[in-house]
Amino acid sequence: MSLLKLEKLVKDFGGLRAVDEVSFAVEAGDIFGLIGPNGAGKTTVFNLITGNYVPNKGKVIFDGQVLNGLAPNKIVTLGVARTFQTIRLFKALSALENVLAGCHCRMKSGSIAAMLKTPFQKREEKEAIQLALAELDFVGLGDDADTRSDSLSYGNQRLLEIARALATQPKLLILDEPAGGMNEQETDALIEIIARIKARGITVLLIEHDMSLVMQACEKLVVIEYGRKIAEGLPEEIKVNKKVIEAYLGTDDEEEGEACF
């Protein structure tokens, strides 16, 4: 059974059909790429999976459960974590606290336990900090635990978002343009981190414009254009797919298309 399955997903914004009967399935353990030209509806698909939008038609099935209509925080608890296309960190808080936000949904003690400082609350708090530090180490930000998140470099802010998402202990990690704004070295480091995430047994679904990253990291790709799926397959197949090249370049010139990848 697939970990994540989209069944004929439709999303309308007024008269505009942003996502038009998109279906695909992500197998557990995959690194799955969702690509397409600007405005194709990739992020909308992500927002439908994570519960930020409710689909007009179709189903999102994760781990055998229909996600339609569930609140985003509930979906996170079920095991779907995400990062955002435009970085959305808690700016005034430290890197550690940002990651602790991810730990939140696996913790239990509430306001009264906090006021009484029960032994359980103290232990849980310590364990959460340990977990958060481990995730910071995992993305290579272990030394920046105390740094205010908005004073980190752009690339590191993206990594911090990944650490925050990992701290929710997800089964599926959704990355929305993780390499956006990164330089070449940072992108290489990111590819290596994605491979290590896979090694932890976490399935990865990502949107990316950086084709070198997509071709190196992803094992399977889906291409969408104008809200419709136009191709699906292995990276090598997608690379030479006529429809995809046309979508990206609006031309039949295959040589130019090859150069793009």
Binding site: L93, L100, A101, R164
Partner: peptide, 28 residues
């Protein structure tokens, strides 16, 4: 004590960015 706990942090997360807070699993 309340400020320096999971509860206090959760309030700060939703103050900073409630979309990101929800996306991190916090019931805002």
């Amino acid at each position: 004590r309340l400020e320096n706990s999971r509860f206090g942090r959760a309030l700060n997360f939703l103050r900073e960015d409630d979309v990101a807070a929800e996306g991190s699993g916090i019931n805002t």
